[in-house]
């Protein structure tokens, strides 16, 4: 009986090894084969044909962070044509380790550019990038390229749009209480929220801003209940960031208040409630990277999508009758941020 067991384990092990070897010998093909079959030729001055791969932590239709990069790729394709820009993606790579494997695999499979769209991927990128000197990597959202000349970094100055939203919110609130629903107090979310609070305080320091981080990116019910709580505490204007805020938007809508959006244009979601959204247009920074790449620079620079360069745009909801003075204040804030007369004080 004892022998049986040993034999059995050996058989299993052997099986596994056999499968491994059997797969190894007959030429490396399937996954390497597809988009890289035509090696792109370096053609300075003109945009080379690019195969781009995106790795992102949530879903491409999350209505938030990942959708923003996906939409940017569609915009790029629109502009350059599908023949020139061809892209693939791996979404929902919330497991950092899986994302690392995806980044490495795409780089090894002949993609010219791999976009790691999640600040948590940085550590992996730092390890992988040196192994693929021909491939450009882009890491967002951050400013850190690790000093490597094939990593681009990009981030959004989300506090700028947050500030503009905050200015408008401060002028629209009647109760002088504003609610904010955040996920985890970090990264893009924190930057946006801090900018928003700064905008409110700069407009009217007496307004009370209730900020709640629910420490979760997916619990829609808890986000909704946070909104209910803030509304009960007097909030009549709200904002929030990350994909679970759809629950909160619904609640402020029910109560006839206003909502300010970020990451994606949320006006379609609640046309009578969303006043304005800060929208990311990553294609602006991606175009710069692509341009540099065709000139032979594979990385080493960092980009910021902001109001000045159009990487960040305020989308005002045409369905809402925004009072003139509010609109003027918003435009003044945008102009002030662009020409530098407004400096946003972050905590």
């Amino acid at each position: 009986m004892k022998k049986t067991k040993i034999i059995l384990i050996l058989v299993l092990m052997l099986m596994l090894i056999f499968t491994a070897c059997a797969q190894q010998t007959p030429v490396e093909e399937p996954d390497v084969e597809e988009p890289s079959s035509e090696e792109p030729v370096e053609e300075p001055e003109e945009i080379e044909k690019l195969s781009i791969a995106i790795v992102s932590p949530s879903s491409i239709n999350d209505f938030a962070f990942t959708q923003s990069i996906y939409d940017a790729m569609l915009a790029l394709q629109e502009e350059y044509g599908e023949d020139t820009i061809d892209f693939v993606y791996s979404e929902n790579m919330f497991i950092v380790d899986d994302a690392a494997a995806a980044i490495r695999d795409y780089a090894a499979s002949g993609y010219n550019m791999v976009i790691a769209h999640g600040s948590q991927y940085g550590s992996s990128l730092q390890e992988i990038a040196p192994d693929f000197p021909e491939v450009s990597f882009a890491w967002g959202t951050t400013v850190d390229t690790f000093g490597q000349d094939n990593i681009y970094a990009y981030e959004a100055a989300s506090h700028e749009g947050g500030y503009v939203n905050g200015v408008m919110a401060a002028m629209l609130t009647e109760s002088k209480v504003i609610g904010v629903v955040g996920p985890v107090e970090t990264g893009d979310a924190k930057l946006y929220v801090d900018g928003f609070v700064a905008g409110v305080k700069a407009t009217d320091p007496d307004i009370e801003v209730l900020v709640t981080y629910i420490n979760n990116f997916s619990d829609v019910a808890l986000a909704a209940e946070t909104a209910e709580t803030q509304i009960a505490a007097g909030a009549d204007v709200m904002t929030g960031t990350a994909q679970m805020v759809v629950g909160a938007i619904g609640k402020i809508q029910e109560n006839g208040g206003y909502w300010f959006g970020t990451q994606a244009d949320q006006a379609d979601f609640a046309p009578d409630t969303v006043v304005a959204s800060q929208v990311y247009h990553w294609e602006v920074v991606l175009k710069e990277m692509i341009g540099l790449r065709s000139e032979g620079t594979l990385g080493g620079q960092s980009f910021v999508a902001n109001l000045a360069n159009g990487g960040q745009v305020m989308a005002f909801n045409p369905n809402i009758d925004i009072p003139e003075e509010v609109m003027e204040a918003a435009q003044a804030a945008i102009q002030g941020i662009i020409d530098g007369t407004i400096t946003i004080e972050l905590p």
Binding site: D62, F63, S218, D219, V220, A221, V246, G250
Partner: peptide, 18 residues
């Protein structure tokens, strides 16, 4: 009760461990 009564929306992974 979440998607058509309390929240009236569906979002990916919205039950979040409930």
């Amino acid at each position: 009760s979440l998607s058509i009564a309390l929240l009236n929306v569906f979002q990916l992974g919205m039950t979040a461990g409930q």
